[in-house]
Design a protein around this nucleic acid. Sequence first.
DNA 1: GAGGTTAATTGAACACCGTTCAATAATCAA
DNA 2: TTGATTATTGAACGGTGTTCAATTAACCTC
Lengths: 205, 205
Amino acid sequence: MARQRKHNTEEMINMALVAAENLIIGGGLSQLSGRKVSAEIGYSVGSLYTVFENLDDLILQVNGRTLDAMRDAMLSALEGCETPEKCIKAMAYAYVEYACLNNGLWTAVYEHNLPKDTALPGWFAEKVDGMFLLVEMQLSSLQGLSQNKISEVAKTLWCGVHGICVLAATRKYEAANVAHVNPLVDGLITNYMAGIQLEIRGEKV
Amino acid sequence: MARQRKHNTEEMINMALVAAENLIIGGGLSQLSGRKVSAEIGYSVGSLYTVFENLDDLILQVNGRTLDAMRDAMLSALEGCETPEKCIKAMAYAYVEYACLNNGLWTAVYEHNLPKDTALPGWFAEKVDGMFLLVEMQLSSLQGLSQNKISEVAKTLWCGVHGICVLAATRKYEAANVAHVNPLVDGLITNYMAGIQLEIRGEKV
DNA sequence: GAGGTTAATTGAACACCGTTCAATAATCAA
DNA sequence: TTGATTATTGAACGGTGTTCAATTAACCTC
């Protein structure tokens, strides 16, 4: 029979992802390297390539976990919210808070781009879509919006929230904190949703 | 006297930036390297470091030129527009068009992050701010908005537009084209501005 | 226990990368 | 022709992602 594994595949992947996350938290995506990760988990470089296709694969899985964590934060934020708009705002605040508090991990999600010829794997796209679906769920309890419109509104709202966070992250010195970002997010959702309500009622400004 | 230069500093910088842009257009930021740039312009690697501080500096200057080009596109789009809202939409469409048509260069702007301990240079931050100022200028002809509010609205709107483009760029396969993105942008501006108009008038939905 | 089979793990090798800096090359003044 | 000056070079350093023959450790069989 064959040599015994020090850890099974799942354990190894998990250890590697944790090590990678710590490197990213410590110094951003640029501080991540396969050799550092492998050294951290007590394996040689080559072993990394037995559980990951390549380093892009590893990063993608780190980012997948980050998206999961954000999703969890958003779901927790839903508890006790009253109206669709308030629920969406609660999720947006949770998103902002996560992005500000876990800046390294959050930045890695959108900083990492696959080579031009490589397609984004389906499971990753689904995680991104999942966040939009959370918003859509809230919108679906509003009367007068077609499914297409709901999908459009969710995309627009969430892209807006994300864009605001991106700007805040760029301007590290002055604006990457919840207190500064939340008012913008609040204004976006309040006013955009007001416009949508008018549209539903067929009124014009 | 001293040895004669093959090109003066300005020429060298320009040649290097053009070469770098072509590399980014061809295969994204990951395909850029100092050695490739220097080979392309007929210099050795070392010479690059006589006109750029390091590779981050070079990339930052490429991104600066991209921001300039986007600004130019936005200014051109302003010709003939009638109302503030229409003018903002015209600029947004120009932004979307540039991002879709010059995806490599546009992606490089937000994909590139300086190391954690390095501050974004002032001249770069100013170029970013300049785009927000273009939006603010349009808003300033609206009655009833304080300067603070104008600044907030401009940030929110433009972050929203940017966020929508980011999502489109992520989903390369289905959505990175003007026809798909413009309706979202249009809806964002229309509805958010409707909400702002209501706020000005002190009405509620 | 010895030998064989199997598969996990290694680490050296390859071709690249950013960055530095002593050495070289090219120019003009004396 | 020599010296001074400065633009330019390219080898060197320590890092990177990735591959893969060689090694190692486990078990089964004899």
